[in-house]
Design a protein around this nucleic acid. Structure first.
Lengths: 148, 148
DNA sequence: ATTGTTGCAAAGTGTTTGCACAAAC
DNA sequence: GTTTGTGCAAACACTTTGCAACAAT
């Protein structure tokens, strides 16, 4: 049942459902963005999304891409991550695949990682501060294996 | 001996020394920026720095502010933090005052916090990945006490 | 006198907005 | 037919760069 490459994975399916619930109509541009994101395991920038969609003959205007990503972020199905590269990246939120990022300061490569202890630490901080923590973002900077 | 409000704190002193060592001349604009940063315990944006300097009658051109901050960042005496607000913030690096940030998604407030367990977790990840980790940045998003 | 430093204005980059047209309902 | 979605171009915000004037050595 947890096969990774269904025609439409869990994420795209539940995203489309959420969109419908929220009263959105079905638009071709949004479908293309959702379908592209669905194939990703890590974060893409708006420009990368634009390029990838153009490459597969389903070009979507840049403004539409930003609008769609914002909607998906607000719905909570996409998370916008700012890795300190002067541009935002977006990735599908899959409940069981929470992760963080290593960013190479030389080549800009982005690598995902996850860590239980880190999550626990964040969780315990969330309880101790006078602040309603909704999410967190952890970025490790340095040099990847190739640039080192 | 660890009095917080010396005429010139440890940080400004060692920063000026590092600047001299690195062959920089003494410039008024840079001195003003260093002196302002020296008074901060948390991160300021370039625009905030510009405004604060103007308010104290030592206006510094915006381009100079960015250039100076970049130099200080490269020297390692300032750290550039990207809190996902479409702008960078800069704070003095004080070896014994490492901290991270809570960012209010409504009003933009930035609050510092630190946590031992978090640091330990990051440190242990650094050793386990195939990546030369040089630094890290942890941001907790949510709503501050006032906006909640 | 030489060379680093500064300020201004212009250019750049990623993102957002205004608006007219097309598509969904 | 009404309302939402989309694409284009223009506007925006933050940052960087080019260049001439200035200050430190």
């Amino acid at each position: 049942m947890a096969k990774a490459k269904e025609r439409e994975s869990q994420w795209a399916a539940s995203t489309n459902e959420r969109l419908a619930q929220a009263g959105f109509r079905r638009g071709g541009a949004r479908a293309a963005v959702v379908s592209l994101l669905d194939e990703q395991s890590c974060a893409l920038s708006a420009y990368e999304i634009e390029g990838l969609l153009a490459a597969r003959e389903r070009a979507v205007g840049r403004a539409s891409i930003y609008r769609i990503l914002e909607q998906l972020d607000e719905l909570g199905v996409v998370s916008k991550v700012e890795l300190g590269q002067a541009q935002a990246r977006y990735e599908p939120v899959r409940p069981d695949h929470h992760h963080h990022h290593l960013v190479c300061d030389k080549c800009g490569a982005v690598i995902a990682f996850d860590d239980e202890a880190l999550e626990r630490a964040v969780h315990s901080i969330s309880k101790r501060v006078d602040f309603a923590v909704e999410g967190h973002e952890i970025v490790l900077h340095g040099f990847c294996a190739e640039c080192r």
